[in-house]
Design a protein around this nucleic acid. Structure first.
Lengths: 115, 115
DNA sequence: TCGTTATATTCGATATATGGCATATAATAG
DNA sequence: CTATTATATGCCATATATCGAATATAACGA
């Protein structure tokens, strides 16, 4: 069940907030897209995603070698609202804009493939 | 100006969430009341309050030797809403109940003195 | 099978946070 | 002034988080 301690811990790191904002904006993203957008070492992305996932905030879906992350469907309402408010409050920061921009410039995105 | 990094950092510690919940519920509390309610060493209370205050979440008012803490009046709306949702999401936990109970049992509370 | 791509994990070093205890400061009363 | 109460801070030990680099795993195609 959902653990408030892990939830707030997950939000306390900027890299994790960057990941969350992108995922929330796009609905679902695979690791390589997040990796490309944030322009950080892949193991770092992977580890931070694991922290968010283990907090119950993200769910995953596998498709071949890709792993897609999305908001967890059973996320408590109050937690979902906090994430919404967080996005609203911070999305105007430069870092988040740059992430979105890089993602937009990415070619051959798995999300956009028709399989 | 308000710093999102410090804001989420402040929410990531349980002692600080306990302090915030009590202050939000009561409107304003002095350190000795929070100290009594949480039943933790006074320096610990003081330092955690400082973290929340330095994050721009709390404002203080001095009255003699007492220092009263309340939500900062210029808290951004999105941040205030996050605090509300946080309270809603976690207030049913045992720890928070016990804090409120101890506070209720405290005698000679500065807040309740007529000066 | 081997090689490639995508993702996750381990390890060890370093940074940051937290805690306890003692002490400092500040305000007030006598 | 001194003593007392309320609050804050300094110092140091310890716990926890984060990082980079290397490596492991997993799925797929040739």
């Amino acid at each position: 069940m959902f653990n408030e301690y892990l939830f707030f811990e997950a939000l306390s790191d900027e890299t994790r907030r960057r990941l969350l904002l992108l995922i929330m904006k796009q609905g679902e993203l695979c690791v390589c897209e997040l990796f490309f957008a944030l322009n950080l070492p892949q193991p770092k992305i992977s580890r931070h995603l694991a922290v968010i996932r283990e907090a119950g905030i993200l769910a995953t879906r596998k498709e071949g070698t890709w792993v897609f992350y999305r908001l967890h469907p059973q996320l408590p309402l109050w937690a979902a609202k906090i994430l919404e408010m967080m996005a609203q409050g911070i999305e105007h920061g430069n870092i988040y804009h740059q992430d979105a921009k890089r993602l937009g410039a990415m070619e051959n995105r798995p999300s956009k493939c028709d399989i």
